[in-house]
Simulated assay, not measured.
Amino acid sequence: MDLIRQSPFARILETRSFKELNKKASTYLNLDWSRYPQAGYITAHLLSGSVITNIQSGQTILVNEVEFYGRDAMLDCHKEPTGEQKGVPEKTSIPSTTGEEYYKRVRPVTLRRRDGVRLVIGTNTCGVLVTSCIRVDRILEGSISVGGDTRNFEISESELKNIRVFVDNERLGKGKKMKKKTVKKITKDFGADRLRQVRSKFHRLNTFRLIRCSGPLTDAPQFRPFSVFTIGRNSDRDSASSGAAHIFYKMALAVIHYQEKATFTLEDIRFGQQLCQSAKDISIPMQNIHELFAEVDTKIPIIGNKPLNKQLHAIAEAQSTRIAKANKNVATELKDLFLG
Score class of each variant (00 low, 15 high):
residue 223 F to T: 12
residue 252 A to Y: 09
residue 55 I to G: 05
residue 319 Q to L: 13
residue 9 F to D: 14
residue 23 K to H: 15
residue 186 I to H: 05
residue 1 M to Y: 03
residue 181 K to D: 00
residue 66 V to F: 02
residue 43 T to R: 04
residue 147 G to H: 02
residue 15 T to G: 14
residue 271 F to E: 11
residue 194 R to I: 07
residue 191 G to I: 13
residue 80 E to Y: 03
residue 73 A to C: 11
residue 106 V to D: 03
residue 224 R to G: 08
residue 150 T to E: 12
residue 238 D to R: 10
residue 88 V to Q: 10
residue 43 T to Y: 03
residue 139 I to Y: 00
residue 204 R to F: 00
residue 93 S to R: 10
residue 252 A to Q: 04
residue 210 L to M: 14
residue 171 R to H: 15
residue 131 T to D: 07
residue 214 S to A: 14
residue 14 E to R: 08
residue 325 K to F: 10
residue 35 R to G: 07
residue 212 R to P: 09
residue 306 K to T: 02
residue 131 T to L: 07
residue 201 K to Q: 10
residue 263 T to V: 01
residue 233 R to H: 04
residue 295 E to A: 09
residue 308 L to P: 04
residue 212 R to G: 14
residue 64 N to G: 14
residue 59 Q to P: 15
residue 200 S to I: 10
residue 142 G to C: 03
residue 18 F to V: 00
residue 72 D to N: 13
residue 209 R to F: 10
residue 333 E to C: 08
residue 255 V to T: 02
residue 218 T to H: 10
residue 134 I to F: 06
residue 4 I to W: 10
residue 194 R to W: 04
residue 47 L to H: 03
residue 291 E to C: 07
residue 24 K to Y: 11
residue 49 G to M: 05
residue 249 Y to M: 12
residue 26 S to C: 08
residue 96 S to E: 03
residue 108 P to T: 01
residue 107 R to Q: 08
residue 56 Q to F: 12
residue 130 V to D: 08
residue 294 A to W: 02
residue 170 E to I: 06
residue 48 S to I: 05
residue 55 I to Q: 00
residue 102 Y to G: 05
residue 173 G to D: 13
residue 190 F to L: 13
residue 29 L to K: 03
residue 200 S to G: 11
residue 75 L to G: 08
residue 253 L to C: 15
residue 164 R to W: 01
residue 92 T to N: 07
residue 324 A to M: 15
residue 89 P to M: 00
residue 289 I to T: 09
residue 162 N to I: 08
residue 286 M to I: 12
residue 158 S to N: 14
residue 340 G to C: 14
residue 268 D to L: 13
residue 278 S to K: 11
residue 55 I to M: 00
residue 93 S to I: 00
residue 278 S to V: 14
residue 214 S to T: 10
residue 295 E to C: 06
residue 292 L to C: 03
residue 158 S to H: 06
residue 156 S to Q: 05
residue 128 V to Y: 04
residue 233 R to W: 03
residue 305 N to D: 11
residue 230 T to R: 00
residue 251 M to G: 01
residue 173 G to M: 07
residue 328 K to S: 01
residue 44 A to P: 12
residue 75 L to A: 15
residue 85 Q to L: 11
residue 103 Y to N: 01
residue 6 Q to M: 06
residue 43 T to N: 09
residue 28 Y to F: 15
residue 222 Q to K: 05
residue 156 S to L: 11
residue 225 P to R: 00
residue 310 K to L: 07
residue 150 T to D: 11
residue 125 T to F: 02
residue 90 E to H: 07
residue 173 G to L: 03
residue 162 N to T: 10
residue 339 L to F: 11
residue 291 E to L: 01
residue 272 G to C: 05
residue 255 V to K: 07
residue 276 C to P: 01
residue 248 F to S: 05
residue 208 F to T: 13
residue 54 N to H: 00
residue 101 E to H: 11
residue 322 R to I: 11
residue 190 F to Y: 12
residue 294 A to S: 10
residue 71 R to T: 06
residue 222 Q to N: 09
residue 216 P to M: 12
residue 61 I to Y: 01
residue 192 A to M: 13
residue 186 I to M: 12
residue 325 K to C: 07
